[in-house]
Design a protein around this nucleic acid. Structure first.
Lengths: 187, 187
DNA sequence: ACAATAGTGTCTTTAAGACATTATGCG
DNA sequence: CGCATAATGTCTTAAAGACACTATTGT
């Protein structure tokens, strides 16, 4: 799983990496503002596969321009969206971000980790339509922090509604090829 | 468990029952604002036994004065705080509240229900320092919506760290007296 | 005695976790 | 072959749920 950041073109924190964010317009819905933030990194509405609200941060000194609240939202987007204005990075490669954005990431990870393999929609958004068992292990590891037992993870995958194992396998270097899992098409 | 509401003295929704809320001051921390809201119904800081943040609501028409965000917080307070400026009501007796406050209550209940018997601090805040098995059944029923199996609930209670059954019993009408459970004193 | 409420004990199911064994690719 | 990675199967444990049975009160 990759995290989207972008390099801020203006002050404050000009030139630094940050999570995409916008100032809320008067009367604007949070979801709309979230879409504006995504558009800044080149993601359109149709590429969003799942989203939700995290907590609202209130640290008064988080923005040098003055006290602000920050209502944090998250979204999982298509792979096809990855070639645009964002810098995508693995969770363990995230350096120091602008504002208090590292704190936001710290809160996001366990939230998604708690939903992985439990909430079907979120899980599907995170895995993509097809994925290998190795992908699943990597996803689990990056969100939960430790490597799962592959046998137990296979059992978990097999029990997820809408997810089935295909007959395909994928070879990526030495070792037994990985099975490919695929989500059922949505009606 | 009882929910605290108060009758609004001013417009909008003057005379109607509402959850206690305040407008956030510039640069004020959310927790401080929450304390101001509690003070409106006569609850002081020392009476708060547990608290947390819910979601942030953004419905632009929720306040006739104009578009606002509402960052919702919850707090569990001492029984001793109940005789003040608030109107305390059971969850199933809550009528129509001002603004979109019914929506807030709807979101709060499952949140607390998910924490009941799992998060020790919250559970302790909700039960109070001592309580009967009947109280536990009532609490479970009001938060989770259906009556628990008393045997299984007893087993759950017995496994909670810091909670022990006393030798006391309490009689409240016909039927076998209820056992009294008590939390260990905090160090 | 009987109704009402509470507590005890047992059985089943399910989910998780641990781990040994087997399978299939690469060099 | 030896190494690396993946899949299968088994065993154990913990948590939940269902439910029969016993216990203690008021009327």
């Amino acid at each position: 799983m990759l995290l989207a950041t972008y390099r801020r073109p203006v002050d404050p924190f000009s030139g630094r990496l940050a999570l995409p964010g916008v100032l809320l317009l008067r009367g604007e819905r949070l979801q709309k503002a979230g879409q504006r933030a995504l558009r800044k990194i080149g993601v359109t509405r149709g590429q969003v596969r799942g989203s939700g609200q995290l907590v609202t941060f209130d640290e008064p000194n988080r923005d040098p321009r003055g006290p602000t609240l920050s209502v944090t939202l998250w979204a999982v987007v298509d792979d096809s969206a990855q070639a645009r204005h964002a810098k995508w990075m693995a969770l363990d490669e995230v350096g120091r971000l602008a504002f208090d954005h590292n704190r936001i990431v710290e809160r996001l990870i366990p939230r998604l980790g708690g939903l992985l393999w439990r909430d079907t929609d979120i899980t599907r958004a995170l895995t993509g339509e097809t994925f290998t068992a190795g992908d699943a292990v990597a996803l689990h590891t990056s969100l939960l922090g430790e490597e799962p037992d592959r046998g137990n993870l296979n059992r978990t995958l097999a029990s997820l509604p809408g997810l089935t194992r295909t007959s395909q396998t994928v070879v990526r270097g030495p070792g037994r090829p990985s099975a490919v899992w695929s989500w059922a098409k949505t009606a």
